[in-house]
Design a binder for these strands. Structure first.
Lengths: 165, 165
DNA sequence: CTTAAACCCGTAGTCAGCTACGGAGTCAAG
DNA sequence: CTTGACTCCGTAGCTGACTACGGGTTTAAG
């Protein structure tokens, strides 16, 4: 398990997007659109991650126009942010690839089936999260009330799961 | 990325718990409580995973009583299920370890701080999940309505995130 | 008393998802 | 026309969370 290297990583994770980094960046700005570095800064990931996503077909690798350097627009940024959001929600990159394919609009039936399955998963997660939320709230308020040294029996409800608030 | 081996895995993931496996199991049942194999079957994980959790201090390794074989009770099962639920909700094993430590009830101040931080995370996830849920619902019903071959502009809202339902 | 299913424990391998490295090319600014 | 921040691309390494392997031990059942 070990403990991670933190700092830089943390900054990335917390700040999420990094327009400062974008501004500070003295990049090849003559053309329209962003460079990969700028996209990464705004999207709150690092360049290598974007390249990785491109290899895995999660993001398109844009054509280069007049220059040797590729340009990225709003479209790509949206894609990137979508990927990140979906990940937080527990979708794997493979699943996200599928979701993004849905966006192309082909294969309506499969699309629907997948979407419905995902919807179930999401509903289950919502229920679990709500249960967890109420358990944590109880824990916090019990702690606040002193409760003979914080025996915190609320944790039981957390451990036994299922909303018994 | 690659495609996984599926079948067995899938069964595990879908069925979650496996009392059939438990029943089928001709295990060392003279003593009270379950054996590790039974715990695994009921918990819907495999034995190796439980041992792994023990090494990582997520689960206690119970003392052996009269026999060379360790026995597990409700307590351990609850722990195990809690771990699994928390994982689905996006907590890492490290975080889950912390959550479980809270259950011991010591260190009230830190406990509270951690719990409050977790609560924020959970609230954010709830919001994201709700947004995704509504986006998916739209997608599904749009598909159902035919919508000139499923152009599915709903995906846009999914991609641009934030609930604009 | 044997047998075979389960157990024990240690170590090694796997897979997803990054992250780092290194050498070569590009290009805006000085 | 050099410099240095940034790009490109390929390959290698890392981390978290398992999963498998293998040799030895226990124990319920026949």
């Amino acid at each position: 398990m070990k403990t991670s290297k933190a700092s830089f990583e943390q900054a990335k994770r917390n700040g999420q997007t990094n327009k400062a980094g974008f501004a500070r960046m003295r990049a090849k700005n003559s053309e329209a659109g962003m460079t990969i570095g700028q996209l990464a800064a705004i999207g709150g990931v690092n360049v290598e991650t974007i390249r990785y996503y491109q290899r895995e077909k999660l993001l398109p690798t844009p054509k280069r126009l007049h220059s040797a350097i590729r340009r990225y627009g709003e479209e790509e940024l949206k894609h990137l942010l979508f990927i990140k959001r979906a990940q937080v929600l527990g979708f794997s990159l493979t699943e996200i690839t599928l979701l993004l394919q849905l966006a192309e609009g082909e294969h309506c039936a499969e699309t629907q089936a997948l979407a419905e399955k995902k919807l179930d998963v999401i509903k289950q997660k919502l229920a679990d999260l709500l249960a967890m939320e109420s358990a944590l709230k109880k824990l916090i308020s019990a702690c606040r009330r002193g409760k003979d040294g914080c025996g915190c029996p609320i944790i039981d409800s957390l451990i036994s799961g299922k909303n018994n608030a």
